[in-house]
Each structure stands twice: as structure tokens, then as C-alpha cells.
């Protein structure tokens, strides 16, 4: 073979040195860049966590709910379920890709359908997680320095003294006349309003704390046993009266009853960004699903498009595996 012929073959186009089509390779390179975006977020989370390593919220104490099981302490079971749903939908996706290789239209349709259902269950679960997290469960007091003080008391369990959290609403003494009304746009300064007021004022919490002698304050500082520090009765009253500024219920971008507000910020941002990926994945899957049903790929003679969205869908699963580890386990 002369050099000219070889050159024509190499540079003349239609050559696939990596034995992958253009579309598939671009999907891989998109995944690389998206993976770097996600690792940027997770590494930033790691930065903030290392910065407050002695006072970061403990995930098992934050995510303890399971739908329809009220008051049952079920740390992480629901996220484990969500992880399983996403892995399962990844499996149905590969099965769809595999059926595509065999040009089996009805099987591709069926597996794509299951994948979409799995994605919807996952997004729905995430919405539920957010809702539970935003609502909060015990409430806490924020100090003027932005630290969080939580409440609880010691109870006897299997012959041991265990610290059990108490909700602010269970001990705060509500006074008949509230000293503070919510400022609305129509009063005072025009078109200036404020966020929802907490259900209790600091005074009501202080009265409640004085009236209930067994209630203690728990700070965010983690002790040698890996548990949050519980203050003595005297210190508790002192902290709340001297430093307490605001009653906090649930979490949002400004305050977080579970601990550092950064934890809530990163939770919303990272799981939100991932949830948005799942949502767009579901939309793309639906489009491809209809193309399969209409026989587009049957006529094209190749189901490679299913493979490409499959890559994206698995990537979403891959990211979740890491989010699961760094948000809920570590």
C-alpha cells in the first residue's frame, strides 16, 4: 500500500480510531465535563466540612424519616431505598440497550418504560426528602454567632441514660399576647415584607426551659465519642439566655436547625443539581421512548440512540452513588 492511499484512509474521514461513533464519544466527553462539575461541588462540600470538622451535622440524625412511618427512627433506610431504585432503573436501561443490539423493539419499549418509572419514583422520593428536611422536626435556637443549640433530656433505656431530643413546641410556653406581628408589604415601608416568623419567640423558649427542669441544651461540638456535646443544666440556661437570638424550625438557605447552615446549602444545591439531572434524564428517556414506539430506530437500523441516552442515565446513577456516600454515609 502506498503512502498516499494510507493517508487518504487516515485523514479522509469516516475513520474511527477509537471504534466509537462520533455521537457516543461526544456523550463520553460531556460526561467527563459533567463529572468534573459534580466533583467540584462535592469537593467544595468537603472543604466546608473540613473547615467545621468538629461541629458538622451527623447525617443519621438528620435523615431519620420514612414515608408513612411517623415517629419511627429509621436512619438512612429511605435513601438506601432511593439508591436501590436508581440502580434498578440503570439495570432496566442496560437491558433496553441490550435488547436494542438484538433489534428487539418490543423489549426495548418495555425496558425504557420501566426506566422512566424508576426515574420518576426517584425524583418523587427526592421531593419528599426535601420537604421533610425543610419542615424540620425538633426546632432549635440560633445564637448570635450563628451556632445552633438543640434541646433534649436524658431518659432511661435498657438501664442506660440516653439523651433524647425534645421539640421546641413541646416545652415552649406560649404567651397569650404575642409581642411581634409579621410585617407585611401593605404596612409601614411599602413593598417591603419579611419571611415567616418562627412559631415561638425567644422569651417563650426561655420560659419553657425554666419551667421544665430536666431539659438540657446540646451544642454542635462533637466530643471524643463522636457525639454532640450536652451541656449541664446551668450552662444550658446560661447559653440560651445570653446567646440565644432566634428560634429556628427546619432548614432553608439562611438557617438550619440541624447545625451549620452550609450543610443545608450544600444539601439543596448538590441533591438539587443531581435531581435536575434525573429530571432531564427522564425527559430525554421519554423522547427516546416515543421514538422507539414510533419505530424511528427500527427504520434507522440501529438502536445506538438508546445506548447514548443510556450512557447519560448511568452517569446520573454513578453521581448518586457518590452523593449517597458523601452526604449520608461518611
Amino acid at each position: 500500500m502506498s503512502t498516499a492511499v494510507a493517508e487518504g484512509k487516515t485523514w479522509g474521514g469516516g475513520n474511527q480510531p477509537l471504534k466509537a461513533s462520533y455521537g457516543k464519544m461526544m456523550m463520553w466527553f460531556f460526561i467527563v465535563s459533567d463529572a468534573l462539575t459534580f466533583s467540584g461541588f462535592l469537593a467544595a462540600y468537603g472543604f466546608s466540612r473540613f473547615k467545621f470538622i468538629d461541629a458538622w451535622p451527623i447525617a443519621d440524625e438528620v435523615f431519620t424519616h420514612f414515608p408513612f412511618l411517623h415517629g419511627v427512627d429509621a436512619p438512612m433506610y429511605y435513601v438506601a431505598f432511593m439508591t436501590f431504585v436508581l440502580i434498578m432503573s440503570s439495570v432496566t436501561m442496560v437491558l433496553a440497550v441490550d435488547a436494542g443490539h438484538h433489534m428487539n423493539k418490543s423489549k426495548v419499549t418495555f425496558y425504557m418504560f420501566l426506566t422512566i418509572i424508576g426515574g420518576l419514583i426517584f425524583v418523587g422520593s427526592q421531593a419528599w426528602e426535601w420537604n421533610t428536611f425543610i419542615k424540620g422536626d425538633y426546632g432549635a435556637v440560633q445564637t448570635k454567632g450563628g451556632n445552633i443549640l438543640q434541646f433534649g433530656h436524658y431518659v432511661e433505656k435498657d438501664g442506660e441514660q440516653v439523651f433524647k431530643r425534645v421539640a421546641v413546641k413541646d416545652f415552649a410556653v406560649a404567651t397569650a399576647h404575642k409581642d411581634r406581628t409579621q410585617h407585611e408589604r401593605k404596612n409601614g415601608l411599602w413593598f417591603v415584607n419579611e419571611g415567616t416568623l418562627p412559631s415561638y419567640t425567644m422569651d417563650e423558649v426561655i420560659h419553657g426551659l425554666q419551667a421544665n427542669k430536666d431539659i438540657l441544651v446540646r451544642t454542635q461540638i462533637i466530643n471524643e465519642d463522636g457525639e454532640k456535646t450536652v451541656l449541664s443544666r446551668g450552662e444550658s440556661l446560661d447559653q440560651i439566655m445570653k446567646n440565644g437570638r432566634l428560634v429556628v424550625e427546619g432548614a432553608n438557605l439562611h438557617v438550619n436547625e440541624y447545625g451549620s447552615p452550609l450543610f443545608a446549602d450544600f444539601f439543596f444545591f448538590i441533591t438539587g443539581f443531581h435531581g435536575f439531572h434525573v429530571f432531564s434524564g427522564v425527559v430525554i428517556n421519554i423522547i427516546i421512548f416515543f421514538n422507539v414506539v414510533l419505530g424511528t430506530y427500527e427504520r434507522r437500523g440501529s438502536y445506538e440512540m438508546v445506548e447514548k441516552v443510556g450512557l447519560y442515565w448511568h452517569f446520573v446513577d454513578l453521581v448518586w452513588v457518590f452523593v449517597f456516600t458523601f452526604f449520608y454515609l461518611v
Binding site: L36, S39, A43, G46, F47, F50, I53
Partner: peptide, 17 residues
């Protein structure tokens, strides 16, 4: 790239702490 990023950020976070 990820290992590099993680090393830099965690090192810095630990330093700030």
C-alpha cells in the same frame, strides 16, 4: 483532575479549621 481538586480543597479546609 478529581484527585488534584480534592487534595487542594481538603488541605485548605483543614488549614482553615
Amino acid at each position: 483532575l478529581i484527585l488534584y481538586l480534592i487534595f487542594i480543597l481538603l488541605q485548605e479546609g483543614g488549614y482553615v479549621f
